[in-house]
Design a protein around this nucleic acid. Structure first.
Lengths: 307, 307
DNA sequence: CAACGATGCCAAGTTCTGCTTATGACCTGT
DNA sequence: ACAGGTCATAAGCAGAACTTGGCATCGTTG
């Protein structure tokens, strides 16, 4: 770090621009001796006379004019910095790197983006489909600003730690049966009644939820197929591949007519929410995206948790 | 003036470069809370969160990284400024605008310039022939850094005021007679003996000196010709145009064989010296030129006045 | 799993920077 | 000669800012 106080450099600049110490002091809102002392200190710091004093004011020496030029450049840089920061805080600029899990990408994201185009037109939102575990990693490494993730009650509280979790809405898990299933329309159907079925499991974490739910219902599911694609899962069910548990948003995003969707007692919901590094909510651009998401999620479920 | 303390900006920069507040503090030679407080103040000043804190250190927000970039630019500018100043004080750079009166330009200047080429090869000396009165004006206006001027004892102390005078050497005034002058070789010749002669006067100030000297010798000279060119004056004397008073340096610079040069009692000397704005001696480049001139002038006369 | 080491923040105390007021010197112009 | 401009210096005081000490949190390690 150079041994020159940059504040004094700026003071020096205003003095040079004004042609006299007193005038510079007035512009700074200070008294003349204050500025005079600063200039003396600056000259001591740089070890050279910068100004020739006379009763008519001051004129810079050669070293003084060169230094004043540098000071001008620094002042301009400061000006630019404050302006850029103002733009960032006023959302006239800013980028948010946003990651969401696939099914939310289909359902929630488009309206949110269009909402943002209105409220913060100059905000750049770069968006990425990403599974929750990877999202957590990327958030930690600072490669992502905000992530829309889901979590099942059974899942450990994750390694939150430095991350911040804001629940958005509850995504009910539904049972999906083939149309010709004998109890497809049975109003008294429970999860335990499906103990002997073969199952189509979803992604790894959805499968964990299936197993957890089944355990509390008293059985261990026989998993025949595994896919994290909602359509594939439903088609498998449709064609007799088994039964499945799928979240409501997935079923809403990619409805398949030829299957029966049932809400069963004892099925958990998964929570959909936002994840970000602790403190990132303070970043205006991030907050803007969060607000848009909250506004979009609110009407979707009465049990939505506001933040 | 932007409302952001540039020192804090530099502190912020070192913290970002180090990845943690503590490490930044160590580099600055401070304690961690000191830096922490500065960062908090900076964030308050700009109204935005700049760093995301974690137990692993800090990572800049978007605003933080942009600001850090500006801070880098400012630091570089400061670095460049200190370097340039160091060059100026070390005489690795620098320009001196130097003015001298004509006859000195011929005699003193060439050796001085060659001397400077050795001691300060990267020093720019721009040189200008200028009469003392004009030199004073240009010094006042800051268009000249240093001037070599002469002054006669009779001349008022000039309007020194804000200017600084350093005597260099004494320039004796000599009488110039035609070779066929009846008393050309008379060892007892005095100025009073030339009362009835007609005179060739020099420049305005030299003429003033002639009149002043003549008055103390008891007569008023009859001036027939006037010229500020030393050669012309001597030629006029040679061809019977009259007698003249000319400074030694002029006679030395432009010797004319066919005249007789006499040192007479009661003739004043003119002082040759340096003039500069008060305080300009502190400028290294100016001091270098002055030193070279002093070194050059010293052997020329035993009565040289050192500074 | 507990302890350690790293990170950060906060509160309180003390040092010292830095601003003000007051004064004096100097040059300029009337 | 004096009034009005410039700047420097000295003394005093307030607030900034650095330090010390204590604590919370997180990640790692034995």
């Amino acid at each position: 770090m150079p041994g020159m106080d940059p504040r004094r450099l700026l003071i020096f600049r205003t003095v040079v621009r004004n042609g006299s110490i007193g005038a510079g002091a007035r512009e700074l809102g200070w008294t003349q001796p204050a500025v005079s002392q600063h200039l003396a200190a600056l000259e001591k710091e740089v070890g050279t006379t910068l100004l020739l004093r006379s009763s008519a004011g001051v004129t810079p020496t050669e070293a003084g004019s060169r230094l004043a030029q540098h000071a001008e450049a620094i002042a301009a840089q400061l000006e630019a910095a404050t302006e850029e920061l103002a733009d960032l805080t006023a959302l006239r600029r800013g980028t948010v790197r946003f990651g969401t899990f696939p099914s939310a990408a289909a359902v929630l994201l488009p309206p949110v983006l269009s909402r943002l185009r209105e409220t913060a037109p100059d905000l750049d939102v770069t968006f990425e489909e990403i599974e929750p575990p990877d999202a957590i990693a990327k958030l930690r490494e600072g490669e992502l600003d905000l992530a829309l993730v889901f979590r099942y009650p059974c899942s450990d509280v994750d390694a939150e730690g430095t991350l911040e979790w804001s629940p958005l809405l509850e995504d009910r898990v539904m049972a999906v049966l083939p149309q010709d299933h004998p109890r497809a329309e049975d109003p008294d159907l429970t999860l335990a009644d499906l103990a002997e079925e073969t199952w189509v499991a979803g992604c790894e974490r959805c499968r964990a939820n299936l197993i957890s739910s089944a355990r509390t219902a008293g059985f261990t599911p026989t998993v025949r197929h595994s896919t994290d694609d909602g359509v594939v899962a439903q088609r498998l069910v449709q064609h007799g591949g088994g039964v499945a548990l799928l979240p409501e948003t997935v079923l809403e995003a990619t409805p398949v007519e030829e299957v029966v969707v049932r809400s069963l007692p004892g099925l958990d919901s998964r929570m959909i929410g936002l994840l970000n590094r602790r403190g990132a909510q303070a970043i205006p651009a991030v907050a803007a995206v969060r607000d848009a998401l909250v506004a979009e999620a609110a009407p979707r479920t009465s049990s939505a948790v506001m933040i």
